[in-house]
Design a protein around this nucleic acid. Sequence first.
DNA 1: AACTTATCCAACCGCCGCTAC
DNA 2: AGTAGCGGCGGTTGGATAAGT
Length: 226
Amino acid sequence: MGGVAWTEEEDHLLKKCIQQYGEGKWHRVPLLAGLNRCRKSCRLRWLNYLRPNIKRGNFAEEEVEMIIKLHKLLGNRWSLIAGRLPGRTANDVKNYWNCHLSKKLNALEAEDRQMAKDVQVTRPQTRNVGSSSGKRSDQKQSLSEKEVQQESSMSSLTFDVDADGHNQMLESQHDNIYACLHQQGSIVSEFSMDFQLEGFEAMMNGEGSSSQWDWGDLLLDMDFYK
DNA sequence: AACTTATCCAACCGCCGCTAC
DNA sequence: AGTAGCGGCGGTTGGATAAGT
Protein backbone atom coordinates (compact mmCIF):
# COMPACT_ATOMS: atom_id res chain seq x y z
CA MET A 1 0.00 0.00 0.00
CA GLY A 2 1.05 3.63 -0.47
CA GLY A 3 0.92 4.37 3.25
CA VAL A 4 -0.03 3.03 6.65
CA ALA A 5 -3.10 0.77 6.38
CA TRP A 6 -6.16 1.61 8.43
CA THR A 7 -6.98 -0.75 11.28
CA GLU A 8 -10.48 -1.96 12.17
CA GLU A 9 -10.26 0.10 15.31
CA GLU A 10 -9.53 3.27 13.33
CA ASP A 11 -12.35 2.51 10.91
CA HIS A 12 -14.73 2.06 13.83
CA LEU A 13 -13.68 5.36 15.40
CA LEU A 14 -14.07 7.23 12.13
CA LYS A 15 -17.49 5.71 11.42
CA LYS A 16 -18.67 6.57 14.91
CA CYS A 17 -17.44 10.13 14.52
CA ILE A 18 -19.18 10.64 11.17
CA GLN A 19 -22.39 9.12 12.48
CA GLN A 20 -22.28 11.45 15.46
CA TYR A 21 -21.17 14.70 13.86
CA GLY A 22 -21.95 14.16 10.17
CA GLU A 23 -19.76 14.65 7.10
CA GLY A 24 -17.81 17.83 6.53
CA LYS A 25 -15.61 19.76 8.95
CA TRP A 26 -12.84 17.30 8.16
CA HIS A 27 -10.23 19.40 9.96
CA ARG A 28 -12.00 18.55 13.22
CA VAL A 29 -12.50 14.85 12.53
CA PRO A 30 -9.07 13.59 13.69
CA LEU A 31 -9.54 15.35 17.03
CA LEU A 32 -13.20 14.39 17.47
CA ALA A 33 -12.58 10.77 16.50
CA GLY A 34 -9.33 10.50 18.46
CA LEU A 35 -7.41 9.44 15.38
CA ASN A 36 -3.76 9.99 14.64
CA ARG A 37 -4.54 10.72 11.00
CA CYS A 38 -4.66 13.90 8.98
CA ARG A 39 -7.95 15.42 7.80
CA LYS A 40 -7.32 14.27 4.25
CA SER A 41 -6.72 10.67 5.24
CA CYS A 42 -9.94 10.63 7.24
CA ARG A 43 -11.95 12.12 4.39
CA LEU A 44 -10.46 9.72 1.85
CA ARG A 45 -11.00 6.69 4.06
CA TRP A 46 -14.62 7.63 4.53
CA LEU A 47 -15.31 8.47 0.88
CA ASN A 48 -13.50 5.50 -0.63
CA TYR A 49 -14.12 2.77 1.88
CA LEU A 50 -16.42 3.39 4.83
CA ARG A 51 -19.26 5.34 3.25
CA PRO A 52 -22.48 3.32 2.96
CA ASN A 53 -23.62 1.93 -0.42
CA ILE A 54 -20.13 1.64 -1.85
CA LYS A 55 -20.06 -0.96 -4.59
CA ARG A 56 -17.04 -3.23 -4.54
CA GLY A 57 -15.79 -5.86 -6.94
CA ASN A 58 -15.52 -6.00 -10.71
CA PHE A 59 -16.99 -3.34 -12.94
CA ALA A 60 -19.99 -4.43 -15.00
CA GLU A 61 -19.83 -4.15 -18.77
CA GLU A 62 -22.29 -1.23 -18.73
CA GLU A 63 -20.16 0.57 -16.16
CA VAL A 64 -17.03 0.11 -18.27
CA GLU A 65 -18.81 1.45 -21.35
CA MET A 66 -20.04 4.41 -19.34
CA ILE A 67 -16.53 5.15 -18.07
CA ILE A 68 -15.11 5.09 -21.60
CA LYS A 69 -17.84 7.39 -22.91
CA LEU A 70 -17.56 9.80 -20.01
CA HIS A 71 -13.79 9.87 -20.13
CA LYS A 72 -14.03 10.81 -23.77
CA LEU A 73 -16.25 13.72 -22.81
CA LEU A 74 -14.67 14.81 -19.54
CA GLY A 75 -11.07 13.63 -19.56
CA ASN A 76 -9.51 12.70 -16.22
CA ARG A 77 -12.26 14.25 -14.13
CA TRP A 78 -12.74 11.15 -12.04
CA SER A 79 -15.08 12.61 -9.49
CA LEU A 80 -17.51 13.72 -12.20
CA ILE A 81 -17.29 10.33 -13.89
CA ALA A 82 -17.79 8.52 -10.59
CA GLY A 83 -20.81 10.72 -9.95
CA ARG A 84 -22.52 9.01 -12.86
CA LEU A 85 -21.77 5.52 -11.51
CA PRO A 86 -23.79 4.81 -8.35
CA GLY A 87 -21.69 3.22 -5.63
CA ARG A 88 -18.37 3.79 -7.36
CA THR A 89 -15.74 6.18 -6.03
CA ALA A 90 -13.46 8.47 -8.00
CA ASN A 91 -10.48 6.46 -6.77
CA ASP A 92 -12.04 3.21 -7.97
CA VAL A 93 -12.74 4.65 -11.40
CA LYS A 94 -9.25 6.13 -11.65
CA ASN A 95 -7.60 2.88 -10.61
CA TYR A 96 -9.71 0.88 -13.00
CA TRP A 97 -8.90 3.28 -15.81
CA ASN A 98 -5.18 3.21 -15.13
CA CYS A 99 -5.00 -0.56 -14.71
CA HIS A 100 -7.43 -1.79 -17.35
CA LEU A 101 -8.63 0.79 -19.79
CA SER A 102 -5.82 3.21 -20.58
CA LYS A 103 -3.58 0.55 -22.09
CA LYS A 104 -6.45 -1.06 -23.95
CA LEU A 105 -7.65 2.23 -25.39
CA ASN A 106 -4.16 3.41 -26.28
CA ALA A 107 -3.75 0.29 -28.36
CA LEU A 108 -7.12 0.88 -30.03
CA GLU A 109 -6.32 4.54 -30.70
CA ALA A 110 -3.02 3.59 -32.30
CA GLU A 111 -4.97 1.25 -34.54
CA ASP A 112 -7.46 3.98 -35.38
CA ARG A 113 -4.70 6.44 -36.22
CA GLN A 114 -3.18 3.94 -38.56
CA MET A 115 -6.53 3.44 -40.30
CA ALA A 116 -7.28 7.18 -40.40
CA LYS A 117 -4.10 7.95 -42.31
CA ASP A 118 -5.81 7.19 -45.62
CA VAL A 119 -9.16 8.73 -44.74
CA GLN A 120 -10.02 12.40 -45.25
CA VAL A 121 -12.13 13.49 -42.27
CA THR A 122 -14.43 16.51 -42.52
CA ARG A 123 -15.26 18.05 -39.16
CA PRO A 124 -18.35 20.24 -38.71
CA GLN A 125 -17.57 23.94 -38.42
CA THR A 126 -19.12 26.14 -35.77
CA ARG A 127 -21.27 28.71 -37.51
CA ASN A 128 -23.07 30.42 -34.67
CA VAL A 129 -21.75 30.31 -31.14
CA GLY A 130 -24.33 32.07 -28.95
CA SER A 131 -23.02 33.65 -25.76
CA SER A 132 -19.99 31.45 -25.70
CA SER A 133 -16.77 31.66 -27.62
CA GLY A 134 -13.41 30.01 -27.52
CA LYS A 135 -12.22 32.68 -25.12
CA ARG A 136 -15.19 32.40 -22.81
CA SER A 137 -13.19 31.52 -19.73
CA ASP A 138 -10.86 34.47 -20.28
CA GLN A 139 -13.79 36.79 -20.61
CA LYS A 140 -15.38 35.38 -17.50
CA GLN A 141 -12.24 35.98 -15.51
CA SER A 142 -12.45 39.67 -16.32
CA LEU A 143 -16.08 39.96 -15.24
CA SER A 144 -17.06 41.24 -11.83
CA GLU A 145 -18.59 38.83 -9.35
CA LYS A 146 -22.03 40.36 -9.88
CA GLU A 147 -21.74 40.05 -13.63
CA VAL A 148 -20.69 36.43 -13.32
CA GLN A 149 -23.71 35.72 -11.14
CA GLN A 150 -26.03 37.37 -13.64
CA GLU A 151 -24.42 35.50 -16.49
CA SER A 152 -24.56 32.11 -14.78
CA SER A 153 -28.23 32.60 -13.97
CA MET A 154 -28.90 32.98 -17.69
CA SER A 155 -26.30 30.47 -18.81
CA SER A 156 -27.85 29.17 -21.98
CA LEU A 157 -25.40 28.36 -24.71
CA THR A 158 -26.58 27.45 -28.15
CA PHE A 159 -24.50 26.15 -31.00
CA ASP A 160 -25.81 25.59 -34.47
CA VAL A 161 -23.56 23.62 -36.70
CA ASP A 162 -23.94 22.52 -40.28
CA ALA A 163 -22.35 19.32 -41.44
CA ASP A 164 -23.13 17.01 -44.29
CA GLY A 165 -26.67 18.27 -44.74
CA HIS A 166 -27.51 17.88 -41.04
CA ASN A 167 -28.24 20.52 -38.47
CA GLN A 168 -26.64 19.89 -35.13
CA MET A 169 -27.74 21.80 -32.10
CA LEU A 170 -26.03 21.83 -28.72
CA GLU A 171 -27.47 23.68 -25.81
CA SER A 172 -26.33 24.02 -22.23
CA GLN A 173 -28.52 25.28 -19.43
CA HIS A 174 -27.08 25.35 -15.91
CA ASP A 175 -25.94 21.78 -15.29
CA ASN A 176 -27.44 20.24 -18.38
CA ILE A 177 -26.22 19.63 -21.89
CA TYR A 178 -28.73 18.89 -24.58
CA ALA A 179 -27.77 18.03 -28.11
CA CYS A 180 -29.74 16.90 -31.07
CA LEU A 181 -29.09 15.97 -34.65
CA HIS A 182 -31.93 16.83 -37.00
CA GLN A 183 -32.51 16.50 -40.70
CA GLN A 184 -35.28 18.03 -42.79
CA GLY A 185 -37.15 19.25 -39.75
CA SER A 186 -37.21 16.00 -37.81
CA ILE A 187 -34.92 14.94 -34.97
CA VAL A 188 -32.69 12.03 -35.92
CA SER A 189 -31.20 11.55 -32.46
CA GLU A 190 -31.02 13.30 -29.13
CA PHE A 191 -28.58 13.45 -26.26
CA SER A 192 -29.00 14.93 -22.79
CA MET A 193 -26.78 14.96 -19.72
CA ASP A 194 -26.60 16.96 -16.54
CA PHE A 195 -22.99 17.99 -16.21
CA GLN A 196 -21.70 21.04 -14.44
CA LEU A 197 -21.60 23.92 -16.86
CA GLU A 198 -18.08 24.79 -15.79
CA GLY A 199 -16.83 21.39 -16.88
CA PHE A 200 -18.62 21.72 -20.14
CA GLU A 201 -17.11 25.12 -20.77
CA ALA A 202 -13.67 23.75 -20.01
CA MET A 203 -14.23 21.18 -22.71
CA MET A 204 -15.34 23.84 -25.14
CA ASN A 205 -12.18 25.79 -24.36
CA GLY A 206 -10.05 22.71 -24.90
CA GLU A 207 -8.63 22.73 -21.42
CA GLY A 208 -6.70 19.82 -19.94
CA SER A 209 -6.86 16.37 -21.37
CA SER A 210 -10.34 17.11 -22.68
CA SER A 211 -8.79 18.87 -25.61
CA GLN A 212 -9.35 15.76 -27.65
CA TRP A 213 -13.06 16.35 -27.38
CA ASP A 214 -14.83 17.63 -30.46
CA TRP A 215 -18.18 17.64 -32.21
CA GLY A 216 -17.59 14.28 -33.79
CA ASP A 217 -17.08 12.69 -30.40
CA LEU A 218 -20.27 14.19 -29.06
CA LEU A 219 -22.29 12.98 -32.01
CA LEU A 220 -20.78 9.55 -31.52
CA ASP A 221 -21.91 9.62 -27.92
CA MET A 222 -25.44 10.52 -28.94
CA ASP A 223 -25.87 7.01 -30.29
CA PHE A 224 -25.13 5.65 -26.87
CA TYR A 225 -27.77 7.74 -25.12
CA LYS A 226 -30.55 7.27 -27.68
C1' DA B 1 9.06 -25.09 -4.15
C1' DA B 2 11.51 -20.86 -4.88
C1' DC B 3 12.13 -16.92 -7.18
C1' DT B 4 10.90 -13.06 -10.35
C1' DT B 5 7.74 -10.09 -12.63
C1' DA B 6 3.30 -7.93 -13.32
C1' DT B 7 -0.89 -6.19 -11.61
C1' DC B 8 -3.99 -4.20 -8.34
C1' DC B 9 -5.57 -0.72 -5.29
C1' DA B 10 -5.46 1.84 -0.70
C1' DA B 11 -3.13 5.62 0.93
C1' DC B 12 -0.44 9.70 0.47
C1' DC B 13 1.07 14.12 -1.65
C1' DG B 14 0.85 18.45 -3.79
C1' DC B 15 -1.84 21.57 -6.03
C1' DC B 16 -6.05 24.36 -6.85
C1' DG B 17 -10.15 27.18 -6.01
C1' DC B 18 -13.07 29.09 -2.62
C1' DT B 19 -14.05 31.61 1.54
C1' DA B 20 -13.33 34.37 5.54
C1' DC B 21 -10.70 37.69 7.63
C1' DA C 1 -5.25 43.13 -2.09
C1' DG C 2 -3.06 39.68 0.47
C1' DT C 3 -3.15 35.59 3.17
C1' DA C 4 -4.40 31.54 5.85
C1' DG C 5 -7.31 27.65 6.25
C1' DC C 6 -10.25 24.56 4.26
C1' DG C 7 -12.34 20.96 1.15
C1' DG C 8 -11.64 18.70 -2.95
C1' DC C 9 -9.22 16.74 -6.80
C1' DG C 10 -5.90 14.10 -9.75
C1' DG C 11 -1.32 12.01 -9.90
C1' DT C 12 1.78 8.97 -7.76
C1' DT C 13 3.60 5.54 -4.63
C1' DG C 14 4.52 1.17 -2.76
C1' DG C 15 2.93 -3.09 -0.31
C1' DA C 16 0.12 -7.20 -1.16
C1' DT C 17 -0.97 -10.63 -4.13
C1' DA C 18 -1.35 -13.22 -8.46
C1' DA C 19 0.82 -15.10 -12.42
C1' DG C 20 4.66 -16.77 -14.78
C1' DT C 21 9.18 -19.19 -15.09
